[in-house]
Amino acid sequence: MELLMIAVIGILFGCGTYLLLQAHLLQIIVGLALFSHGANLALMVSGGLKRGGPPLLTIGAPYADPLPQALILTAIVISFGVTAFALVLAFLTKQVCVSNDVDELAGG
């Protein structure tokens, strides 16, 4: 099971990288979103994957490792905040610099 998830994470990072290398800011932001999905799943894997054992102390052991879940929660919130910022930045960039194409931006 872990192996499958690791493969999925690899795919997420691979596709994320591909998008990062594209020219449009929206693509880049989507690539970053894929990165953060991948990283969150990686944290999930780091606690060991367990089915049917949510760490709620009402249902009885064995529980899944709760720490990675807490960490992912933090990571999701942070990446949401930052992605929102990046998106607005792209939006403003379009308004001020007329383009969202990083090559055109660099070209001045």
Binding site: L20, I28, L32, F35, G38, L67
Partner: peptide
């Protein structure tokens, strides 16, 4: 963008560390 890439790799490293 560059910092976000680094942050994602940071998380990856944290996952591996844990």
């Amino acid at each position: 963008v560059l910092n976000l890439i680094a942050s994602a790799v940071f998380l990856l490293g944290l996952a591996a560390t844990y």
